[in-house]
Amino acid sequence: MTPSLIQRLDGWGRTFSPFAICLLLILISLAPLRVPILTTASPLLPLMAVYHFGLFRPTLLPHWLVLLLGLLIDLLAGSPVGVNAVVLLMVRHFVEANQRFLVDKPFMVIWFGYALASAGAVAGTWALICFLLWAPIDPRPAIFQYLIALAFYPLAGWVFGRSQAKTRAA
């Protein structure tokens, strides 16, 4: 029996939802948002999505797609090209390497995994940009951004989880 159009559309939706969500989050992270706390955390939204989908839907977020997403962030945000691509690839690799310690574990463990991955990502971004600009950048805003985003992760993780549950139910 050949699948109906609705089934096929649904299949495409499921296949592309991690990519589409990452893309949407990149746009949201660039939107001129003026909500105080959210604005600080928003640049790390794509990182949260890569961590989450790299963990729970790894086949739908292959490495090459992560590379493209990273390059897109760099091009749009105006940061040195390649920095976010390298950092997101590393996060995706970290998640893959530690998948068995993180999947089907309590949320606190997943959150701890995010804390480690994003700490490495923020430190890596800081080091790469300092090197490329050959100037010492004050790390405090980056640390502050990391902490705010860390506190924001449970909400983001819940939203990503809901989107997954919906596609699974469908």
Partner: peptide
Amino acid sequence: AFGLLVLTAFAVMVIGKADTVIIERVRSAV
């Protein structure tokens, strides 16, 4: 594959540093 992709990203970084005109054009288009 992973190593190649990381190398690609670093290569783009080097190109971005060495030839800013190309990157600027791509940036503007995107």
